[in-house]
Design a protein around this nucleic acid. Sequence first.
DNA 1: CATGAATGAGCATTCATTCAT
DNA 2: AATGAATGAATGCTCATTCAT
Lengths: 202, 202, 202, 202
Amino acid sequence: MSETVNRRVRVRATDSKHRLFTASMELIGARGHHAVSVDEIAKAAGVSKGTVYYNFGSKSELIAELLSYGVAILFERLEEGVQDPDPTRGLESMISGSLEFLAEYPSFAQLWISEQWQTESEWAASLERMRHEVIALVQRMLARIAASGTPAPTQPGIDLDTLATAIFGASLILGRDRLVFHPERSVESCVQAVMAFTAPLR
Amino acid sequence: MSETVNRRVRVRATDSKHRLFTASMELIGARGHHAVSVDEIAKAAGVSKGTVYYNFGSKSELIAELLSYGVAILFERLEEGVQDPDPTRGLESMISGSLEFLAEYPSFAQLWISEQWQTESEWAASLERMRHEVIALVQRMLARIAASGTPAPTQPGIDLDTLATAIFGASLILGRDRLVFHPERSVESCVQAVMAFTAPLR
Amino acid sequence: MSETVNRRVRVRATDSKHRLFTASMELIGARGHHAVSVDEIAKAAGVSKGTVYYNFGSKSELIAELLSYGVAILFERLEEGVQDPDPTRGLESMISGSLEFLAEYPSFAQLWISEQWQTESEWAASLERMRHEVIALVQRMLARIAASGTPAPTQPGIDLDTLATAIFGASLILGRDRLVFHPERSVESCVQAVMAFTAPLR
Amino acid sequence: MSETVNRRVRVRATDSKHRLFTASMELIGARGHHAVSVDEIAKAAGVSKGTVYYNFGSKSELIAELLSYGVAILFERLEEGVQDPDPTRGLESMISGSLEFLAEYPSFAQLWISEQWQTESEWAASLERMRHEVIALVQRMLARIAASGTPAPTQPGIDLDTLATAIFGASLILGRDRLVFHPERSVESCVQAVMAFTAPLR
DNA sequence: CATGAATGAGCATTCATTCAT
DNA sequence: AATGAATGAATGCTCATTCAT
């Protein structure tokens, strides 16, 4: 019996947190975190303002958890591509996975885009780590593609780190741009466009 | 004599506005416009808070003017590339021009990145126009490159609009990323990375 | 036990609002609402500025509630006179009731006097309704007095609406004037003076 | 020649002042002096803000001059009634004169109504004098009417000062009310209504 | 677990006033 | 006699945070 109670309680607890997560996603994606108040988030989640503080401690921490929650999911998706024995197909899968992720978690995308290059952002440290790991992952895939490609003596060597950053940037912006300005655009066409970057390596 | 007076007056008049522009650039680039108060901007510019309102009417209008001021300069730089008879060299020049511009006007870059895909941004209308025109310009260059390239029958046709967006996104992010995380990275290597996108067209 | 708790909570909740009401009354009566800041009201009420906004939403709304609170009390007092079977005695009671009311709620009186004929007042709509209803009430009393009076063929008919407005104006001003400039003046002498207006009807 | 210049200059000087007077009248009548800024007044008058300060020294002084300018005109009008050998006809003329004056100088009326009973008004002193003199004038007329009337032993004596205040208040409110809410109402019907107060004296 | 009344520091904005020209 | 750029104190309002219940 006490187990049932505990479970119910736990479910409830998660419920509030989850509702707050969902509400934050929605609101922050459209207006940016600065323009969304804790009051609004609480109201949208259907809980009291106190509950936000009970569950997260602060607005900043709520956003930090939003961020780390998102990054975990993102890396799960990227991992699939890494496993692929064919690096080109693997990178393709990573990009399409990212684009789908950005569509599912729009406020994560917006948060990332607007905060990543703000030098004094509150979440600078964790954002930097995210950025670094994603770019490193892409770079490793590029290295594998270059290694498996025909040894092109004419390519004096594009800097792979820079290229990885370009692919990262293109994916991020394309993913968000598709959602906001081109909902009709398919993930495939976006993937194709980003993959164009890898042509010189093959 | 009256000329001296006039000139001094004009200089004075412009002075405040210009100082405020410069101060805003600096502050907003690092922390985002929401985290910068009018008080701070005024103090950094060495004028009183009232002067901000005398010259701009509102914080929002100050930012709007910052934006239109920046976009004018950006298009001036892009225009140079458009003139080039060789579209590949022209696009290259557009990209390097953009990267240099983003380095010179860091808060413009930050503002653009963080506000462009915020659907309810105060400056949504003018940002959309900026985005549209830049992408259209890039797309036109891509079309010229594709037209002058060898007719590759294997390329069933990448969507040029999507590709242009990818180039736009890669340039924007690469430009800002270089400034914030890789000051040692040269403009040339960035241009090369972005130009990798155009390989399939040639 | 839980009742005690509830009661205390309710008292607390109402407490702030009531303290703010009282403080506003005092301050606005003497200086006019424009010359009284929210800071001052909060300080006078012994609460923080935020509490004003938590309870009322805006300064304007605070004043609006002050107004509707006052008008409810005023109409309660006027109602007594309406019940009187003798219309002359009834009107007399209405006037003395109003004068006493104006003395008890000085800021209500001041607010009414200074805002009622300001065409672009924020509270124009509710003020107009107040004015209309009070004058209509007076007019109805006058009609009853005229009907019960000796049919004076020499009175070609004073416009009752205008006369009611005159009585309304005289009462309003007399009530406020007594408070500010003639505290020694009795309510009775004021009532007598206002009732002088009704002589031609009798 | 210098005379022409002087005259023109003088005319110009008066011009600015007069334009400011007229503009203030209009704006303050509708919104109250607190809600009208010096900027607005200057713009409405078609002069610069500095000119307001050149001509009046302060906003407060502008309003003070507006007030003393108005009171001079008002007393001129009232004087006519005082001259009349028949006190009843004289009072009638005073009231109609006042009503016409209030219609011509609406912001004067509004200013008077809203500031007269504000104990801490900036113009309290001069307003008090105005009020006192007008009431005294009315009272003197009432005394003459009472003296010339049939000695009514039933009238144990209404306080003439209170009655004069009632007439003053009724006239003030009726004059303003007519302008704002009943433009169709004639001056005569208003005069008749106010004169009803004097019936017990006759 | 959850609530919501209360807080107060911080913010954008207004506006009467000054003063160099 | 007039201008208008500049000022800064004051104001209404927002919002993350606290805490008693």
